[in-house]
């Protein structure tokens, strides 16, 4: 018993672990809340692409001596809006447009990083996340963004659901589907960028999509899926963090693996029900 207590408590005698836990829990809540819409709207690939496309913004912010969020949030919002605009205006498919922007902007970010010598940016941290290195400012910003995203989603929930379920009917009923789509894309950008510090560019979808998809497999209602998804997200974040500490493995991949395990269990439960 004492050993278990020590196993659970000791990691959080360190301040950096408490900060990491706080950010991970906040991200674990925020991602599935929005992720439920992402999964039901089939925007998984787009979310992954958006995470890669913010690279130039992150690099620009670091080069300017600013916190990465100052570059990545506006970058992600701009990319999200550009994506929406291009899909609507060019007639190209969403997948094609996303693929072009995703590859081009990620390449631009990596190229600029390799050209700059006077500022050191750790590519591995960007790609896989480094939640153990978050500062008190990161914690405060993450908390603020989590509250803001949750409040906006609460206010827009019924409208976003209508547009997601029946876009044509929603337009005829008087909703501005395009405006709601743009707001959604900007929210998506903010959530992705916030989650990057925990799981990095490559694994961000593991917190955005996996817990939400698992919850949608077992929940009857979308609100239930959001609550359950947030629970799964927090579980993935916390268990992943413990695994990272005790097994001495990278925290981002540990969280992603726990989320995948939760999804596997939810899939088995859903399959057994049918």
């Amino acid at each position: 018993m004492e050993m278990l207590q020590s196993w659970l408590v000791v990691p959080f005698t360190y301040a950096f672990m408490v900060r990491a836990l706080t950010v991970s829990v906040l991200v674990g809540i925020m991602c599935p809340l929005l992720g439920t819409y992402v999964v039901t709207r089939d925007l998984g690939f787009m979310s992954d692409a958006l995470a890669h496309a913010v690279m130039p913004g992150v690099v620009a912010a670091v080069l300017a001596g600013l916190h990465p969020l100052w570059g990545s949030v506006p970058m992600a919002a701009a990319v999200a809006l550009l994506l929406g605009w291009l899909v609507r205006r060019t007639g190209l498919s969403a997948d094609t447009t996303i693929g072009i922007l995703f590859a081009g902007l990620f390449a631009l970010g990596v190229m600029v990083m390799s050209m700059v010598r006077h500022v050191r940016i750790n590519l591995e941290d960007l790609l896989l996340g480094q939640v153990l290195g978050v500062s008190r400012m990161d914690v405060a910003v993450t908390a603020l963004l989590t509250v803001a995203v949750a409040a906006i989603l609460y206010g827009l929930h019924s409208r976003l659901l209508f547009v997601s379920f029946d876009p044509l009917g929603a337009k005829v009923a008087g909703l501005s589907a395009e405006r709601l789509d743009y707001v959604f894309l900007v929210l998506l950008a903010v959530v992705i960028v916030t989650a990057l510090q925990a799981v990095g560019i490559i694994l961000v979808v593991s917190l955005l999509i996996t817990p939400a998809a698992a919850a949608l497999l077992v929940a009857r209602r979308v609100e239930g899926a959001m609550a359950l998804g947030a629970g799964f997200g927090v579980a993935a974040a916390v268990v992943g963090l413990y695994a990272s500490y005790h097994l001495n493995v990278a925290s981002g991949p540990a969280m992603a693996l726990v989320a995948t395990a939760i999804f596997a269990v939810a899939s088995a439960v859903a399959a057994a029900r049918r």
Partner: peptide
């Protein structure tokens, strides 16, 4: 307007 059922996103559990 009630669109054709194929134009409804049935993945949204309502």
């Amino acid at each position: 307007y009630v669109p054709q059922k194929e134009r409804i996103n049935w993945r949204v559990p309502l």
